[in-house]
Design a protein around this nucleic acid. Structure first.
Lengths: 151, 151
DNA sequence: CAGCGATCGTGGGTGCGACCAACGGCTCGT
DNA sequence: ACGAGCCGTTGGTCGCACCCACGATCGCTG
């Protein structure tokens, strides 16, 4: 009926789990990116702030390991975060190779507001699913992620 | 015991569906990219070939619409595909704005071999899940994708 | 205690996928 | 016959994930 008659996705793709996951991930990433951008942040920022609040001050390398962000990218992100005063970078007196990264009060405040944003996004993302289905989805994805752990 | 004691993902992330999806998607994309690369192709190529075989010859714009690939990216991919002789690009006599893209025999052959690769990847990706769980996952993801259709 | 391997921060560069803006050519409805 | 709109193409941008190389530093071992 309507539609440009030019749409319609190849059936091969609609059935492939890899395709589905990537597509949903795309929407997810778009939602996250938009939400973060609206708060003047980005995905990497949230990850780092979360790791900092949860595990306390840490070296940049440790942060990278925990968040799965490359060491070199951590540098850039930390520059941005400290420019915004959300994080403090000070040399580690006990090991002069390292910097100790500390989340500031403002950083924590920002993190919590991003938490709100993120929560809203979860809801939007999972909108068509019942609570049970959401839990099941999380369970299945967690299983997959756990299995493909060893990067 | 083991482990660098520096790993461990923030709890906030482990519970977020958006995070899980993106992580799984990352693994999925890596698997696909590796599989495709081993066959001298890449994700975009498969999408285009699949659309061509399923819907027959089409204009570049139509291909873009069907595969979700931007018009400008379609150009580049089609250049690569026709360089490999997998696709033919000829002017549309009925509408001189358009090119008609046709999949060649070789293209179809390549597509089928990529199908094999892809099938193997599905298996690897979903390895830890039972058949029922796999079906359920596909169902849930499809629901999400259908809901976030518009755009 | 000299020396060497490993680790840390940093800078630079790559790749892929997804997008956007703008152009000249062409079609089609009115 | 003309303007709105589509088509192919070029040439960017952005985010995320990665890699390599470097100098400084640490810590173990001989």
């Amino acid at each position: 009926m309507s539609a440009t008659a030019d749409d319609g996705t190849p059936a091969r793709l609609k059935g492939a789990a890899s395709w589905l996951i990537n597509q949903v991930s795309l929407h997810s990433q778009r939602l996250v990116a938009e939400g973060m951008a609206a708060a003047g942040a980005r995905g990497y920022h949230y990850r780092l702030l979360a790791a900092l609040e949860e595990f306390g001050p840490a070296s940049q390398a440790a942060l990278g390991r925990r968040t799965g962000i490359d060491r070199s990218d951590v540098v850039a992100m930390l520059n941005e975060l400290s420019d915004q005063g959300l994080v403090r970078r000070s040399p580690d007196p006990a090991d002069r190779r390292r910097n100790v990264i500390t989340i500031t009060l403002e950083g924590a405040r920002r993190l919590h507001s991003l938490d709100q944003v993120l929560a809203g996004i979860q809801d939007e993302l999972l909108a068509p699913l019942s609570p049970d289905e959401r839990a099941e989805l999380v369970r299945l994805l967690s299983a997959l992620l756990a299995h493909h752990s060893g990067r």
